[in-house]
């Protein structure tokens, strides 16, 4: 009985693996499996979304799109691997804001974001609110800023990733007000959230806010991306509050530079179709992300614009 069920389990495992590596044959692109490199760990929002994209793209393209997690360096190692791959359209990667438009301005990178990548399309923008504990002494963003200004170094805060977009945006805002604060680095939004709820820090800018918000443990006092947060439409964005940097948090797909027009066209139409699928829209709703589609041309334009805007602001911020 046990042996039988174990054999069945093994058979299932191998048949799934076989399905994964089996490939279709055709002459035009794509004619063999495509590798989608995800520069983040399995299980995060980015990983879940890319696995979904990979599955839906498999149905549309007729070849397997395989997800490969290549983590490290805050996303730069995986994107570096994409940038260095052969520009044949069979290696592409999942990209997000920080390693493309923010970090290159002050860190050594294994790639040049504007030269080494072809941007194939954007599909999600994600809100990134500034949150406090619901019993916090501060009622608004202005309250908090006033405290930070009159108590140098006493405001303890964190974000999902050190030197990522939200960290830089808040630093720029504090800098503009002449406030000095204590940034407490944690690895990942979950740990920052735990520290906020455990009163180790008093403010956080993270994307995993849905559960504690609905339980009334936290409140939103501002939004660090260009669009107001759908969960708190009354709260202003950093730009509306008069601060220079409010980077959009986007998820998209890119390949190495020099991809052919055929490849770009194929992905334009594929992503366009995925964005219309109900399954995908439902998933984004659950992840509290906003569907936001841009084709290759528009995505490239917005990346260049975001990159130079961040560059201007960050040049004035000391680290």
């Amino acid at each position: 009985m046990f042996l039988k069920s174990i054999t069945k389990g093994i058979l299932m495992f191998f048949s799934i693996t076989f399905l994964l590596i089996s490939n279709g044959f055709a002459d035009s692109y794509p004619s063999k499996p495509i590798k989608l490199i995800v520069p983040y760990g399995a299980g995060g929002g980015g990983d879940t979304t890319s696995r979904f994209i990979a599955d839906l793209a498999t149905d549309i393209l007729g070849v397997k799109v395989l997800v490969e997690n290549k983590t490290g360096g805050g996303g730069t190692i995986g994107i570096g691997a994409v940038a260095k791959s052969k520009p044949d359209g069979y290696t592409i990667g999942f990209i997000s804001t920080s390693p493309i438009t923010i970090r290159p301005h002050f860190m050594k990178m294994p790639y040049k974001p504007l030269d080494d990548l072809t941007y194939l399309g954007q599909f999600v923008s994600s809100p990134m609110p500034v949150i406090l504990r619901s019993d916090s002494q501060w009622k608004s963003f202005e309250d908090m800023m006033a405290f930070a200004k009159s108590n140098p170094g006493k405001l303890r805060w964190s974000t999902a990733g050190q030197k990522g977009g939200p960290h830089m945006a808040m630093l720029a805002a504090f800098k503009q007000e002449g406030a000095s604060t204590t940034y407490v680095p944690f690895k990942g939004g979950a740990k920052a959230l735990a520290a906020l709820l455990g009163k180790t820090i008093d403010m956080a800018v993270i994307s995993d806010f849905a559960a504690p918000l609905s339980a009334g443990k936290i409140k939103i006092i501002a939004e660090s991306t260009p669009e107001r947060n759908p969960s708190a439409p009354d709260q202003k964005t950093l730009a509306e509050l008069g601060y220079p940097l409010s980077p959009a948090i986007f998820f998209g797909i890119a390949g190495p530079s020099g991809l052919s027009k055929d490849v770009i066209k194929k992905w334009d139409s594929t992503l366009g179709q995925i964005m219309k699928s109900k399954k995908f829209i439902d998933l984004l709703k659950k992840l509290k992300a906003t569907p936001s589609y841009a084709n290759s041309a528009n995505f490239t334009k917005s990346v260049i614009a975001d990159y130079s805007a961040a560059g201007k602001v960050l040049a004035g911020v000391k680290f």
Partner: peptide, 27 residues
Amino acid sequence: AFGIPGDIAAALIMGAFLIQGITLGPV
């Protein structure tokens, strides 16, 4: 209790629930 995954496995399980329409957390 708070919607904070304790480790990677918990994060993965949370993701799986999310996709099924259940937000694991205090509510």
